[in-house]
């Protein structure tokens, strides 16, 4: 318990430190730091309907982050969340476009499932390369993000292009209203229900199944579980697939929910922020709930920054990056690096 409190304290301290650093930078650059913090606070938490705005961003972020939790706990650094998220969106759009005239509920379910499947497939090939030949999954998943981004451009400007589009934005046809799972606000019983269900399932997976415990052991010491008779390849491939599936589901939720259609380059910071959430939450599912709400708040506050503090909305990206810097400088060496070195030896 004390260790857990200490972990929470550390995470809070790092976030605070990152905010102070950003405040100082903006102050030096001639902006008003107090105004910036006021805008963030106001936009994220205090203004009318702030919670709803937070949830709009927090729900997909949380779902993506649970996938990161699964993979990272098992010692696989799937940083391809963005690409898997995009593939999920593409999957959903393909289902919607491919099943015209079906009952809306069936199309919705099919779209969510196909998005999940596409996300899992986009995690499968880096996972398979990793397990078969030890290819570094950080490289492959990261490269996969760019390929997925280009795939999205092609899909939205080619096969699924909305012919009535203005040409400024490449996007698919709008998803018919009965098929969507939320309005443009992005908050609905369906989205909240899905998010809670995913959270609960992943929590059980991580904390209450043999896979969760063995995966955790494998993440910290793959050699030890090998000597216990575990097949790292199966464990690892399972982690990759589940991780990609959640990111894919998040992408499908985004398309069927607030976005309402597949837009080229949508939610560009999704994957990065999801990794950040998982790391700040110390790879805990319950922790990710709170951290996702916080980052959801930051995302929604980014709309307020230009209005209140005269800052570009990209200032939030700086805050995110600063948090990432502090969190990774702590987490990487102590927890993950040794496992990575040992992995090579274990999987010979």
């Amino acid at each position: 318990m004390r260790a857990r409190l200490a972990a929470v304290g550390r995470a809070v301290a790092f976030v605070a430190l990152a905010l102070v650093l950003c405040g100082a930078i903006f102050e030096v650059a001639g902006f008003s730091a107090p105004d910036m913090f006021a805008a963030i606070l106001d936009g994220a938490f205090l203004s009318d309907g702030a919670l709803a705005h937070d949830l709009r961003w927090a729900c997909p972020l949380f779902v993506s982050a649970t996938g990161v939790v699964i993979a990272f706990r098992c010692g696989y650094f799937n940083v391809g969340t963005q690409g898997q998220f995009y593939l999920g969106g593409i999957g959903a759009a393909v289902a919607v476009a491919g099943l015209p005239g079906w009952p809306p509920l069936l199309v919705t379910v099919a779209a969510l499932l196909l998005g999940t499947l596409f996300g899992a497939l986009w995690a499968f090939w880096p996972g398979w390369l990793r397990i078969r030949s030890g290819t570094d999954e950080v490289i492959t998943t990261l490269m996969g993000n760019f390929i997925a981004g280009l795939l999205l451009v092609w899909v939205t400007s080619g096969p699924l292009k909305d012919p009535s589009g203005s040409g400024q934005v490449t996007a698919s046809r709008p998803v018919p209203l009965p098929i969507r799972i939320s309005s443009d606000t992005g908050v609905s019983p369906a989205i909240l229900g899905l998010t809670v269900a995913v959270g609960a399932l992943v929590w059980v997976l991580v904390n209450r199944t043999a896979f969760g415990v063995l995966g955790g052991l494998a993440g910290r010491n793959p050699v030890m579980v090998t000597w216990q008779g575990a097949r790292l390849s199966r464990l690892g491939l399972g982690a990759f697939l589940l991780s990609g599936a959640t990111a894919g589901l998040a992408g499908a939720m985004e398309v069927l929910g607030p976005d309402g259609r597949l837009v080229s380059g949508f939610s560009p910071a999704e994957g990065f922020t999801a990794v950040l959430i998982a790391l700040v939450a110390n790879l805990s599912v319950t922790g990710s709930v709170i951290v996702a709400l916080f980052f959801g708040g930051l995302a929604s506050a980014s709309l307020y920054l230009p209005v209140i503090a005269g800052l570009p909305s990209a200032a939030i990206d700086m805050v995110n990056a600063a948090i990432a810097l502090f969190i990774t400088s702590r987490a990487w060496p102590s927890r993950f690096r040794p496992a990575r070195f040992r992995l090579r030896r274990a999987s010979r």
Partner: peptide
Amino acid sequence: LGRSALALI
């Protein structure tokens, strides 16, 4: 390791 991976514990 003697159980199935998704067995509840």
